[in-house]
Write a protein that binds this DNA or RNA. Structure first.
Lengths: 410, 410
DNA sequence: ATTACTTTTTAAAATATTTAAATAAGTTTA
DNA sequence: TAAACTTATTTAAATATTTTAAAAAGTAAT
């Protein structure tokens, strides 16, 4: 009985988590159940402190609706966002607020057999320091780069486990909290779907322009992962006859001409070759992040060489987008990730590529936009991953709750 | 009440249509409802002659299950399959049998303002000749080439309506039978999903190699159409720097190097250029179909030039498939359409392209196969389209049925 | 301020659906 | 060949869910 109904509780929690605040009538439509049933479930959720009443909605010409929200501190999520060099750990409440500070750990993923152990001990320490009891955590969501089989919980690029068990099981055993992992590009797409520009859209392509070029696909209003969770390998679609060796072992991949890494390499080459540019003075610094920022700055100031770098990369990304549009006819294409900081720089060259390589009727029906979510997108998305997949332990009539009530009465 | 329950009736009819014969227990699992409820619905469907009991299932170690099937002649479907030159019309019963002959009409789609009128009058005549009353038809399913907005019911390539109304409405008004249209490649994919090699698969790419190169995508066990129904424009993804003008106005489209049309053109050019080949004698005949068959025959006999033609086209299709695999990580890729008649000829060159252009881990997880469905695939698919989307008028307690029963009693 | 109109919430009645137990019809084992 | 075990179907009782109708709470216009 609870088991059966718990489904609605779950759904309502999920909707409130992503929407923030909803009325009973709105929830009733979202979960496709009658208002009285929705009201009943809401009342139960309020009794067990998951949900709170938070005043009346704006008037729409009749009786004003009561609004409901999640109780921010009833459940927490641990969000972990990794890139090749830095791992961030944070605790988020049910209102997407960070609880305490975001912890930054310098953790090299490549060829680091201790990476997994380090993560575990770091998370463990982080939980202890937070002072929040373990039962309060719905789960740990981890965003990581690499070739990930989500079902099996294996990352074929990094974080090898000792005996080939799943990363999930490995961390769960140590921490006793459910773990969910996913590819960083998928996570970013999920964030765009749930709280970004893809909100409410049924089809969207989210391109994660970073040191590589990733892709997260929203198809039928869901994150699409493919048969083995490998979908979205945009980086490695064969697109050039350039004889440039890619990290994947092939040549001519999209990534060989368009990633931010390539952008920096091309900047170096160009300067060596004598190109005039405001960059010339201090470039390169030896740090990818700083180099990238310098190129953006130069481009925004109108430096021709820097602008050209973005134009070339953008045009090639545009060619890739043309392929996506032909195949998947999406409503929107969102440029996200580190590359999004270059904002407007991408727009013209991409549009140019679409004009050249896209059937007009298709291009017309697709909007191209740069993401407005910042650096925290991956953390929000890791939390969203947990809320998307985890079943929160809802026990309105469990001993624990009865106990609690008795205590309150006393 | 009926309106509410009719949903289950619909679902059961659908499952029986595609599976042929199922037990109550199996249906109960498929529609995710309890056995007693399923049994009740089944009984109602039997009372109104939609469903028949058809003996016991094979033993599985316990009581043998009663099997149920659709009553073949209770409902019919009109299936229409069009290509640029020929339109076929057929009536199918609930067991996928053709009722009477398939009618072939020579109907040029390109620049033919009368095409729609001709189709309507042909279907009308066909129905009359069949002697089946209009109420018996669940719908008309039409498979057609071109750029189709399924929601709006518009084909931007052919079959323009007078005032821009939908093709569906146009035919429905004339014939008073519900109409569903879709792109031929989508239809073929639907057929593969429902009764071909993609049966039970969650992700599949069905490539329709014909005079163009189409693509139907099965994602999450459903036909994916994209935002405007334009998804799957495989033909026109930019893939070459060949400066060859495509029918779409762009250059370098996949189609400019790989369609059967191109195959024939290349054969002509090669022979003109002095290539030695068994083809040389009677080729070209002036008929695409015959030319194509001749090339297949020659290739199967080992004619080097003909084999080379398939190798080149196959390799290029393979490069396209590599893109699909990277982006969508499908379980299976099926080669279908007219091209499928060349069968094994494609396998080696495609595999070669995948070896060269695909990340091994991705290629390993995807099977490439040639379709076994023949020329009738589009007709079966047009019927499947109707059964997928149409709600059959189910009225167990309507006046009509009461009437009928009274008559029987008399 | 009264009336007419909206929309939300609530309570009671009606309906839909599932669960659990009983029955039926086989297969397998000793 | 009977007892033990499977699986399928039917029935009745229990539960879940929706529908209906009425009450509550507001807005807008006169």
């Amino acid at each position: 009985m609870i088991a059966k109904k718990a489904n609605y509780h779950q759904q309502i929690i999920k909707h409130l988590y992503f929407a923030g605040s909803l009325s009973c009538a709105e929830l009733s439509i979202l979960i496709k159940k009658s208002v009285p049933l929705t009201a009943k479930v809401l009342n139960e959720l309020m009794e067990s402190d998951f949900v709170l009443e938070t005043g009346l909605a704006e008037s729409t010409g009749g009786r004003r609706a009561q609004k409901y929200e999640l109780n921010a501190g009833q459940v927490y999520i641990i969000a972990v966002a990794m890139d090749q060099l830095i791992t961030r750990v944070a605790i988020l409440d049910m209102h997407h607020n960070f609880v305490g500070d975001v912890k930054k750990i310098e953790l090299k993923l490549a060829n680091n057999p201790n990476a997994l152990t380090e993560i575990i001990s770091n998370i463990q320490g982080f939980i202890k320091a937070s002072g929040i009891s373990k039962e309060k955590f719905a789960g740990i969501g981890i965003s990581m780069p690499g070739f990930i089989d989500v079902k099996k919980g294996i990352n074929y690029s990094f974080l090898k486990t000792l005996h080939g068990e799943s990363i999930n099981a490995c961390i769960e055993n140590a921490l006793k909290i459910p773990v969910l992992i996913d590819n960083d590009s998928s996570i970013i797409a999920l964030t765009e779907l749930k709280m970004g520009r893809a909100r409410g859209k049924k089809n969207a392509m989210v391109i994660n322009v970073g040191w590589g070029v990733g892709l997260g696909m929203i198809l039928n209003a869901e994150l699409y992962r493919g048969q083995n969770g490998f979908a979205g390998e945009f980086s490695h679609i064969p697109m050039f006859n350039n004889n440039k060796l890619c990290s994947c072992g092939k040549t001519g991949c999209l990534e060989t001409e368009t990633s931010l890494q390539v952008l920096i390499e091309k900047a170096k080459e160009g300067l060596k070759g004598g190109r005039l540019s405001g960059l010339a003075k201090d470039f390169p610094t030896g740090h990818y992040e700083t180099d990238y920022e310098m190129i953006i700055d130069a481009a925004l100031k109108g430096d021709q060489f820097a602008v050209e770098l973005f134009s070339d990369a953008g045009y090639n990304i545009g060619r890739g987008i043309a392929i996506l549009i032909h195949l998947l006819n999406p409503e929107i294409v969102i440029l996200s990730g580190l590359g999004a900081f270059a904002g407007k720089m991408w727009e013209a060259p991409i549009q140019q590529a679409l004009n050249k390589h896209c059937i007009p009727r298709l291009a017309e029906n697709t909007v191209i936009e740069v993401s407005k979510l910042g650096y925290n997108a991956a953390l929000y998305g890791a939390a969203a991953l947990v809320m998307e997949n985890k079943t929160i332990d809802y026990h309105p009539h469990s001993e624990k709750h009865k106990q609690k009530k008795i205590l309150l009465i006393k």
